[in-house]
Nucleic acid binder design. Structure first.
Lengths: 127, 127
DNA sequence: CAATTATATTCCTATATGGGAATATGTCAA
DNA sequence: TTGACATATTCCCATATAGGAATATAATTG
């Protein structure tokens, strides 16, 4: 099986650096014509259009016409799913002290026999 | 040019759903043998090994030996770059009120002639 | 209508999958 | 040593790029 399409979900869509650049350029709610993005990011116009196409299919951006221009706008809420997922790991790099404390607490609990319960079908491993 | 390798960076590595499942399974700091992941996630062993290989090359997990087992451990800090990037968009979906207020403030500023300064080489667009 | 401008689409190509099957490697146990 | 077990690697293949070049489509202007 090949890799999932870039339009499968937001995670795949933002894996491409240039697409993240485009997203960043659209930050602040300002709409941008394709040509502006081309000039700003120095990416060939067809490439920008293609990347915008991917982002649009995933829902990260939406487009509207303005004369012969096409204006793109960010729908940043679509990035929420990524944020929600990665946020659950936030504690691993913030608050070093909390982490240490947490470990100490876990060990203390073990000493007191308050091991976290193990699911029935899950054997106790020696590690 | 083909898509960037999955081992290019964390963004590409986590684009694959099964790799995120593996990461999630390793949460909590507990080490896991490959076989445990296979049973837990119901993914064929070669697939698990391959995905772990990708994650290891990117640095998201690290491995150690224990007899004939290989124990994998999460290095969640590697996910920080993703968090840092997506976090800058957090305000777009949290605090609805703040967003409304912000827009109102921007409009007010415009009324007062306090437009955000425009870079010299950036023309004023009609939109 | 013709020329121009803005953007999208099509073609082509080299490359990197991800899964399945089979097999190799490594380690322990009798 | 010989199995048996745990994990990694290799092969094969269908598929989805991402970029470049060329072209098509759309809208404006004269």
């Amino acid at each position: 099986m090949p890799r999932a399409a870039t339009t499968t979900d937001v995670f795949n869509a933002i894996a491409e650096p240039r697409r993240r650049e485009i997203i960043d350029a659209l930050r602040g709610g300002r709409v941008h014509a394709v040509g502006e993005l081309v000039k700003k990011l120095r990416i060939p116009q067809p490439a920008v259009s293609k990347h915008l196409g991917v982002l649009r299919r995933v829902g990260i951006v939406s487009a509207s016409r303005y004369g012969r221009h096409r204006l793109y706008q960010l729908n940043a809420e679509e990035l929420k799913s990524v944020h929600d997922w990665v946020k659950t790991y936030e504690r691993f790099w913030t608050h070093q002290l909390d982490r240490i404390k947490e470990r100490a607490e876990r060990k203390a609990a073990e000493r007191l026999g308050h091991k976290s319960r193990v699911a029935k079908d899950e054997e106790e491993k020696p590690w």
